[in-house]
């Protein structure tokens, strides 16, 4: 299956939905009643100052963190109790604010692993052996992802040799190769300069257009977010404070208040 076909197979689903999510770390409530809808074929943004609980919410979505309360749904099915790898195999992929690359493998192998990990799954013989069909698919999928993200020229380098911007693209290419129907991107443009950010935005747009996947993005670069997203959720200290289209967010007094609040320490 190609990436697009794989996404098509799961499209028709509703994407990712969080319902009254609560996460407590001891006395600290990192996420406090976050509900959100991130449909397929759309870019949804989650905004908030540092420490608002965005990464924590992502960790709950991908199964790395157990929520104190609330539920996560993928394509209408409750996935709150599933393991991270099962969620991934159901079509949920993510990148990390603090990048998680395979530093000792080439860029090509990094990207290829984005798909091969799911092929391997949890069954012993699948983890040991790969079929010829799978190997061919890997080559094809990898080439396409490298192409889409514009890093064909870096294929034989290793992530440690690359700039932050390039590393972000490698991590993106890896989830692209994974053919996930829903992508969670955690501050994908942090560490990128203006031109790189713009190019990054283009890649995301192309990705949604060609594969029809859904994206939920945490991003601090406002022009990128306003440009890219169809719908925006804003949270502060774990609590959702506003949601709406980019235009509504721009006009909202609540958001502006939050913004002024953070401006104070700049």
């Amino acid at each position: 299956m190609t990436t697009a076909e794989r996404v098509d197979a799961v499209t028709g689903g509703t994407g990712l939905r969080l319902d009254r999510l609560v996460v407590k770390f001891g006395g600290l409530t990192a996420v406090n009643g976050l509900s959100l809808d991130a449909p397929l074929g759309r870019v949804t943004a989650l905004l908030g100052p540092n420490g608002a609980g965005k990464t924590t919410a992502f960790n709950v979505c991908s199964g790395l963190q157990r929520p104190t309360d609330g539920s996560v749904e993928l394509d209408g099915r409750d996935i709150t109790a599933l393991s991270p790898q099962t969620r991934a195999r159901r079509g949920l992929g993510r990148t990390f604010q603090k990048m998680e690359l395979f530093d000792h493998a080439t860029v090509r192998d990094n990207v290829s692993m984005g798909r091969e990990a799911a092929m391997a799954g949890s069954l012993p013989w699948r983890q040991i052996f790969s079929t010829r069909r799978e190997r061919e698919e890997l080559v094809e999928v990898t080439a396409r992802a490298l192409e889409l993200c514009g890093i064909v020229g870096l294929a034989d380098r290793r992530p440690v040799e690359l700039s932050t911007g390039q590393r972000r693209l490698v991590e993106l290419a890896r989830v692209v190769a994974g053919g996930f129907s829903m992508l969670l991107l955690d501050e994908p443009s942090s560490g990128l300069d203006k031109a790189e950010t713009q190019a990054f935005g283009e890649v995301l747009r192309k990705l949604v257009a060609t594969t029809g996947c859904g994206i939920l993005i945490v991003e601090h670069d406002m022009s990128l977010v306003m440009d890219l997203s169809d719908y925006i959720y804003v949270m502060e200290f774990g609590t959702p404070i506003f949601e709406g289209t980019p235009d509504e967010v721009r006009r909202s007094p609540e958001v502006r208040a939050a913004y002024l609040g953070t401006e104070g320490d700049e």
């Binding site: 690359l101 692993m113 983890q127 040991i128 890896r174």
Partner: peptide, 28 residues
């Protein structure tokens, strides 16, 4: 050189990445 070798090398660098992409690592 097999898939297992690639998974194991990935495991050494980032178990987190591996599970969020769909591989079960405890069994591995």
């Amino acid at each position: 050189r097999s898939r297992m070798g690639r998974l194991l090398r990935g495991l050494a660098d980032s178990p987190t990445a591996l599970v969020t992409m769909g591989a079960g690592i405890n069994g591995l």
